[in-house]
């Protein structure tokens, strides 16, 4: 089974995000990016499927400041190919990314596309869903289990999709599909830094220049903002002991 994993790099949410002067987008100068955590799960699930059933794993990413690191890390974990796509604006919508990834798929022999179920910047919907519609193959999101089965001479997938309340549905997928991975069967493996460094010396990333992507979402962001500080929680300060005293008093009052 040949699997393609298009990944998204998203702004690092552990850092403070600022809004640009227009108030319509993030201030993207000096913004640091990292791999979307669900995409990390998609890579892990792809590697697990490859290890169980053979085939290849190809990871695709748009060029951002941490793309090389993310792609070399994927190679260090066991991916066969890593392709960097250049020429797509950082503020491009998800559907533009989907279009570019679909163009790249033209030259790749694949059976299955795994994406992260969602990303923190999907204002216009999720990557996997857009790719499936553009490729005209089915899409299942919130997937947390994928098993390959063979029967009747053809390979099929048994996929579990999660609903609220811990209920899941299972689906059989024959033919190509795009699956939005919520969680891999195990936590994404760790690639030691030494191994990533070694791969950086040995391997080279493939590079593709994106075709002109002219995508309009049909929507306009008129205002982007961060929630006002000072709303919400009353912050408790002081030493751990002082804060503990306050919390105990608050809880006792609530319990009555």
């Amino acid at each position: 089974m040949n699997i393609v994993v298009p990944i998204k790099l998203v702004p690092d949410l552990t850092e403070e995000l600022e809004i640009n002067d227009d108030g319509t987008d993030l201030e993207r100068d000096f913004l640091s990016y990292r791999i979307n955590e669900f995409c990390d799960h998609a890579i892990e699930e792809a590697l697990q499927l490859k290890e169980a059933h053979g085939g290849t794993v190809t990871v695709l990413a748009l060029e951002r400041d941490e793309t090389d690191k993310a792609l070399y890390t994927a190679l260090a974990k066991g991916a066969d190919r890593a392709i960097k796509i250049t020429g797509v604006d950082e503020a491009a919508p998800t559907q533009a990314a989907a279009k570019v990834f679909c163009q790249a798929l033209d030259g790749i022999d694949y059976d299955l596309v795994l994406t992260g179920v969602q990303a923190a910047d999907d204002r216009d919907g999720q990557l996997g869903a857009w790719m499936s519609s553009m490729l005209d193959i089915p899409h299942i999101s919130v997937v947390s289990s994928i098993e390959a089965t063979s029967g009747g001479g053809s390979d099929k997938l048994l996929v579990r999709k999660e609903y609220a309340g811990g209920v899941m549905a299972s689906f059989e997928v024959s033919g190509k599909g795009v699956l939005g991975v919520q969680a891999a069967r195990q936590m994404p493996r760790y690639a030691p830094v030494s191994r990533v460094r070694q791969i950086m010396k040995e391997a080279e990333l493939e590079e593709i220049e994106a075709d002109d992507v002219d995508v309009s979402t049909g929507t306009t962001v008129r205002r982007m903002f961060t929630p006002e500080k000072g709303e919400g929680a009353e912050m408790l300060d002081g030493s751990a002991e002082e804060i503990a005293d306050r919390i105990v008093a608050i809880i006792k009052e609530k319990k009555g």
Partner: peptide, 9 residues
């Protein structure tokens, strides 16, 4: 090409 197989509670 997608067939529902069942719910898992």
């Amino acid at each position: 090409t997608v067939t529902f197989k069942g719910l898992i509670k």
